[in-house]
Design a protein around this nucleic acid. Sequence first.
DNA 1: AACCCGGCCAACCGCAAAGAT
DNA 2: GATCTTTGCGGTTGGCCGGGT
Length: 320
Amino acid sequence: MGRVPCCEKDNVKRGQWTPEEDQKLSSYIAQHGTRNWRLIPKHAGLQRCGKSCRLRWTNYLRPDLKHGQFSEAEEQTIVTLHSVLGNRWAVIAAQLPGRTDNDVKNHWNTKLKKKLSGMGIDPVTHKPFSHLITEIATLPPPQAPNLAEAALGCFKDEMLHLLTKRRINIQLQQYGGGGGVPASIKHEDNKDETIEKIKFGISKAIKEPGMPPLDKPWEPVGATSGYIGGVFGSFPGSDNGFHYELASLDNEGEVSAWSQSMCMAAEHHRGLHEKVGDDEHAHDGDDSGSRKETRNGDSMFNSECSLWDLQSNDLMNPII
DNA sequence: AACCCGGCCAACCGCAAAGAT
DNA sequence: GATCTTTGCGGTTGGCCGGGT
């Protein structure tokens, strides 16, 4: 047999908490602790679900919480950890005293994601968009055009931002001084034409002699590409005249400390994934169950490539 | 002044692991 | 061991607010 349900949904209040409710909850927890969330609203005189009380306490009322702006150092920590851990908000928040997973998640979704996109870095993979385009371009037809279309759909906004707002230099030297540029892509200000430019660039890239053989399976090129200090380029070991050069510069044209840090995070991320990739290769014979991740991320940190090994000095709290 | 729009963030929802019976 | 609740987590939503028109 199990237990009784946590609360009857009909009889509970929802929505914003009032100061009176906050006061009731805080004073009850101060006296009795947080032992059983199901009973807390009942005993504290609140018409709330236990789950709602728990969230209110953990995300807002807890006395050890910080409520102010995120510092630059905190932002850097989030980006660095996100590049390694992905959307593991609870684990990331554990490294930021006074911040909750909800805080970190909201800050990421509203600020950091855009900040990275604005710098030309894909916030999901932490790779530069130019790198993604390069990877797509290494695919053989007919996949490449389809994927390019899909990617353009996904990254259209970010690409447009890059191409129209930031200092970006897409060198399509094969055009031969512009004479070979198709008429449809000559007007810089037109956004649709910008997309056409990207498509054209990708299709050109696919046809380049320096490109990997089209009849071979795709392999990531990250291991041989350079990406330091905000500048990224280009095809591995090729001097084929086709490359994207992407500079993440601030308004004054300088590479900011934040930008450099973000780029280093991305570089670190790339290195880690290579290492993780190797590690997973080494475990190819394992049964899948042994690699299954627990909610606390145990397996990640039990693996040969742990966050501790790679960044032990940066972590403030042990990850359980 | 009224309306619209986008950013922000608290709160909710649903799922899965952990724990209790 | 099976079943059920509790807890923790990540994704999503809805409302508030400020700026722009």
